[in-house]
Amino acid sequence: MSTESDQRTIRCMVAKVGLDGHDRGAHVIARAFRDAGFEVVYSGLHKAPEEIVQAAVQEDVDVLGISILSGAHNTLVPKITNGLEGYGAADDTLVLVGGVIPDGDREQLRAESVDAIFGPGTSIEETIEFVRENVPER
């Protein structure tokens, strides 16, 4: 019988990609993940897609949450997901995108291996529950 203490801690990276300097939401979700018992790494601002991929692989994260409000999601997010594939980490990493993503762009992001998109107004509890239910087994 497995107990909660036997379960592996979920490792998450909250990442800010590109020139987007709006980081309040990223800080809120990072703190909420930490409070939920997840290990959290925050990338800091203005990271290139390659830097985020390398950090996610080096930190061996289960979840990569990409916060993006710049409007460059269709360019930057695929660079990250393709980078994860290049390292063989795509199947082991749950990829989330948070920000203002137009409805018309969501299908393209999902086709680029994004597992979920969370927009403004999404409850913290919903996001945490999604992670717990969908984090890849290792």
Rank of each mutant, 00 (worst) to 15 (best):
T3L: 14
S5G: 09
Q7K: 12
T9D: 08
I10V: 15
I10D: 01
C12H: 06
M13D: 08
A15I: 12
L19P: 10
G21L: 10
R24E: 12
I29N: 12
A30I: 13
A30F: 02
A30C: 11
D35I: 01
A36N: 03
G37I: 03
G37H: 01
F38Q: 00
V40S: 04
V40A: 02
S43H: 11
S43K: 13
S43W: 06
G44V: 09
L45P: 11
E51Q: 13
A55E: 15
E59F: 01
D60T: 07
V61P: 06
V63N: 00
L64C: 09
L64M: 05
I68Q: 05
G71D: 05
H73Q: 15
H73F: 04
T75G: 09
T75V: 14
V77Y: 06
T81M: 04
T81Q: 02
N82G: 11
N82P: 02
L84C: 00
L84Y: 00
L84I: 02
E85I: 12
G86D: 03
D91R: 01
L94D: 00
V95C: 04
L96G: 01
G98K: 15
G99V: 10
I101G: 01
P102C: 04
D103G: 12
D103L: 11
R106A: 15
R106F: 08
Q108M: 07
Q108A: 15
R110W: 12
E112P: 03
V114K: 04
G119E: 11
G119T: 14
P120S: 14
G121V: 08
T127D: 06
I128F: 03
F130M: 04
F130G: 05
V131H: 06
N134S: 08
E137V: 03
R138T: 04
